[in-house]
Design a protein around this nucleic acid. Structure first.
Length: 395
DNA sequence: AGTCCACAAACGGCCACAGCAGCTA
DNA sequence: CTTAGCTGCTGTGGCCGTTTGTGGA
């Protein structure tokens, strides 16, 4: 039996929203995410059926269960008998898909206990198109299944920019191994997947082991093009949850990959507009995510066990590029949304903890007892103004 | 609307030295 | 091939100067 819905506390939670860091039942999922344009962008996926805490990224055909990366590893990574289980990547979705649309996303949809039934009851008559009654919003939201269409809608200047970018060049083949390719469908909710690059990474148990700064540097030209937008349009960037999304993704990357990277990223998380490392990461994010949204139906394997990359998905995976023209909403709604977004960003930033990881405890132990002068280490035996042990001053 | 100022927060450098990797004899 | 010795690099925490961000006048 799974955990209960974080919203109603009554029904069993079935889907996980990374942006909200919440597990929801289908009914609440729809209620919550049909509230406004921003929430519609939230990327959701199935909740892990083992831990019921993390978003699932893979489904085991044999066990008919969805797993987050951690649980997948514990279930399949260590047991030779189960390691051969056939597994399918699980797609993310946004908007408010109907039951049939969910079935399209997840072929195993009806296998999920109580899912199909609940869905038919609660979502049967629903369609994602309902949520786009405002035609002004249709272009980026509901009509968007293939990212390339978005690119085509871009103003000429941005179009050329996008065209030059490797982002558009990397669109393409569906990357799901086990799932049959599906035709593009305008009624389908947006499917958010990381594309071939990211999925390849995630199919590997050593997530981001291949994380290579040098490789990214090769894309510096593109990075500049893309990142310059964030510099010039920082407010809109924030409105779309950009910084948070970026940070969370970076955090994931670092923790999953190189611990050295983590410190650098965490230390400079609030100055992303002024450092080199982060825009590179941002570009990488843009690139990999764009692969997804531009290629239509792809897996969301990049999510992996990353609990925190959800916002990245919510912003970038929706297929709406940061340079996308704003919707034709009333200015008051936009203003309110922006205020809310900025407020949420500040709140999250405030609560965020950069738990520095000490790699060498022995060095830390020494540093903790080392005498100092104005914070600087001094040679043994020399006068000091601060002794961590006695917290006294020698002069 | 644009400019200036004050304040707060964040950032980066500095220091000594144990431990580690790589190299040579 | 193994071992010892050497060299160069890394990382550790607190302080401080500089830079950046923010809000009010």
């Amino acid at each position: 039996m799974g955990s209960l819905c974080d919203f109603c506390g009554d029904q069993r939670s079935l889907v996980y929203c990374r942006s909200d860091a919440a597990s929801l039942c289908l009914s609440c999922d729809r209620n919550v995410h049909s509230a406004n344009a921003l929430s519609k962008r939230h990327s959701r996926t199935l909740v892990c059926e083992r831990c019921n805490l993390q978003p699932a990224y893979v489904r085991c055909v044999e066990e008919k269960a969805s797993f987050c990366q951690n649980c997948d590893w514990s279930a399949h990574g260590t047991d030779p008998s189960s390691s051969t289980h056939k597994r399918q990547s699980i797609n993310c979705y946004s908007g408010c898909p109907s039951a049939s649309e969910l079935s399209s996303i997840w072929p195993f949809f009806s296998d999920i206990p109580s899912m199909g039934e609940a869905c038919e009851q609660k979502l049967g008559s629903m369609s994602i198109n309902e949520n786009h009654d405002n035609k002004a919003r249709v272009s980026p939201e509901s009509k968007n299944v293939s990212g390339s269409a978005q690119v085509a809608d871009l103003p000429s200047k941005d179009k050329s920019r996008a065209g030059k970018s490797s982002v558009t060049e990397s669109r393409a083949e569906p990357c799901i191994l086990d799932q049959p390719p599906r035709p593009s469908n305008e009624c389908m909710p947006k499917l958010q997947c990381p594309g071939s690059t990211a999925s390849a990474l995630c199919e590997d148990d050593n997530l981001y082991d291949g994380f290579n700064i040098d490789d990214m540097d090769l894309e510096l030209e593109n990075y500049k093009e893309v990142f310059s937008y964030a510099l010039n349009n920082s407010e809109e960037f924030f409105e779309k949850g950009g910084i948070d999304s970026l940070f969370e993704r970076k955090d994931m990357s670092a923790s999953a990959g190189d611990s050295n990277c983590r410190g650098a990223i965490a230390a400079s998380s609030d100055s992303m507009l002024s450092t080199k490392t982060e825009p590179i990461l941002y570009f990488t994010e843009m690139q990999s995510q764009s692969n997804v949204s531009f290629s239509g139906v792809i897996n969301d394997a990049s999510a992996g066990d990353n609990q925190e990359c959800g916002s990245a998905s919510s912003m970038l995976l929706t297929g709406e590029p940061p340079w996308c023209p704003p919707c034709l909403e009333s200015s008051s709604i936009q203003s309110a949304n922006r205020s809310n977004a900025v407020m949420r960003y500040k709140e999250k930033k405030k609560n965020r903890k950069f738990d520095k990881k000490v790699r060498y405890a022995s060095r830390k132990a020494r540093a903790d007892v080392r005498k100092r002068v104005k914070g600087r280490f001094v040679k043994a035996g020399e006068t000091f103004d601060y002794d961590p042990l006695s917290e006294t001053r020698s002069f």
